[in-house]
Simulated scan of single mutants.
Amino acid sequence: MHQTVLIILSLLLGTSCQSNTKNERAARNSPDKEEIVKPEEQELQKYETAYFASGCFWCVEAIFESVKGVKEVVSGYSGGTQKNPKYEQVAAGKTKHAETVQVYYDPSVISFTALVQVFFGSHDPTTLNRQGPDHGPQYRSIAFYKTEEEKKIIESYIKALEDHDVFNGRTITTQVTKFASFYKAEEYHQDFERKNPNNPYIKAVSIPRLNRFKENFKDYLKDDARH
């Protein structure tokens, strides 16, 4: 019911994760609401990476950014075969990519298993090719793995969710996919929620989704995300 209300509200506001001309222009030109200091590429090499797709990457990026042990999150595209895809192509469903986040994390602080819990706990993995008001294969649910151990962790967690009937009989449609490549999205998509807090989609969909996650995963939050 709550998700239905969000969908209706989003439709009334004419919002979706897909950038129309007006939204894209605002995203490109909007000044940052806060100074965002990004880590250097050399520093990021010290961290492990994980990759997840669960709907609009504006939302997913903000969720993982709030998790302790996560150093950086990058929005991009994965799960397809075309090299160097552009947002307009992905959004139109012309490539096989999904909107994906690259998560740099410190395994001494948070485990891959915990990141998988965050992934499944922050979206509905039973809605095929849809998340909230956004629909199409580019918004499908994918848990990527780089090793057989990561694959085992993901599959075991899915089995546990099914055994405990967490989703009330609904089938989990999440793809468990071997990671192949990741393409960083255009710069205006990076930290979109933090840079555009007054964007209608952010206010109607992203922030409520982030707040629901925070309410359910308080122990996983960074200190500065506990508000």
Rank of each mutant, 00 (worst) to 15 (best):
residue 103 V to P: 05
residue 113 T to W: 01
residue 78 S to A: 15
residue 118 V to C: 06
residue 79 G to A: 05
residue 69 G to T: 13
residue 90 V to F: 11
residue 102 Q to A: 10
residue 126 T to S: 07
residue 89 Q to Y: 04
residue 83 K to Y: 01
residue 102 Q to C: 14
residue 88 E to T: 13
residue 111 S to I: 03
residue 105 Y to N: 07
residue 119 F to W: 10
residue 74 V to L: 15
residue 99 E to R: 12
residue 82 Q to M: 04
residue 117 Q to N: 11
residue 124 D to N: 15
residue 82 Q to T: 03
residue 109 V to T: 15
residue 80 G to K: 11
residue 117 Q to W: 02
residue 77 Y to E: 05
residue 95 T to C: 10
residue 78 S to Y: 09
residue 92 A to T: 04
residue 72 E to M: 13
residue 106 D to F: 08
residue 74 V to C: 06
residue 117 Q to R: 15
residue 91 A to H: 10
residue 98 A to Q: 05
residue 122 S to W: 10
residue 77 Y to K: 06
residue 100 T to E: 12
residue 100 T to H: 12
residue 115 L to N: 00
residue 105 Y to E: 08
residue 95 T to I: 12
residue 92 A to S: 14
residue 71 K to Y: 08
residue 116 V to M: 02
residue 120 F to D: 05
residue 91 A to S: 15
residue 72 E to S: 09
residue 90 V to G: 05
residue 101 V to A: 08
residue 92 A to L: 13
residue 100 T to P: 12
residue 90 V to W: 09
residue 74 V to F: 12
residue 103 V to C: 09
residue 78 S to L: 08
residue 113 T to M: 03
residue 84 N to V: 01
residue 117 Q to A: 04
residue 120 F to V: 08
residue 93 G to F: 01
residue 83 K to W: 01
residue 126 T to I: 06
residue 120 F to P: 07
residue 112 F to A: 01
residue 101 V to T: 11
residue 129 N to Y: 05
residue 129 N to M: 07
residue 123 H to E: 07
residue 121 G to L: 00
residue 124 D to Q: 06
residue 91 A to E: 14
residue 110 I to Q: 03
residue 103 V to I: 15
residue 111 S to H: 03
residue 98 A to E: 05
residue 121 G to M: 00
residue 93 G to M: 03
residue 72 E to N: 14
residue 75 S to D: 06
residue 80 G to I: 05
residue 129 N to V: 03
residue 86 K to C: 02
residue 117 Q to M: 09
residue 114 A to L: 02
residue 125 P to Y: 08
residue 75 S to Q: 11
residue 78 S to R: 10
residue 111 S to D: 03
residue 111 S to M: 03
residue 69 G to S: 13
residue 110 I to Y: 04
residue 116 V to K: 00
residue 84 N to Q: 07
residue 77 Y to S: 04
residue 106 D to V: 08
residue 103 V to K: 09
residue 90 V to C: 10
residue 127 T to F: 03
residue 121 G to V: 01
residue 109 V to K: 13
residue 86 K to G: 01
residue 91 A to I: 06
residue 117 Q to I: 00
residue 72 E to C: 06
residue 118 V to I: 13
residue 99 E to T: 09
residue 126 T to V: 07
residue 71 K to N: 12
residue 78 S to F: 08
residue 101 V to K: 12
residue 88 E to N: 10
residue 100 T to K: 12
residue 130 R to Q: 15
residue 86 K to A: 04
residue 98 A to P: 00
residue 125 P to A: 09
residue 109 V to D: 03
residue 75 S to T: 15
residue 123 H to Y: 10
residue 120 F to Q: 11
residue 86 K to M: 09
residue 104 Y to G: 07
residue 128 L to H: 13
residue 69 G to Q: 14
residue 81 T to Q: 06
residue 81 T to K: 14
residue 104 Y to N: 09
residue 115 L to Y: 02
residue 120 F to C: 11
residue 102 Q to F: 04
residue 96 K to D: 14
residue 93 G to N: 03
residue 124 D to G: 07
residue 76 G to Q: 13
residue 113 T to V: 02
residue 125 P to D: 06
residue 126 T to Y: 08
residue 91 A to T: 14
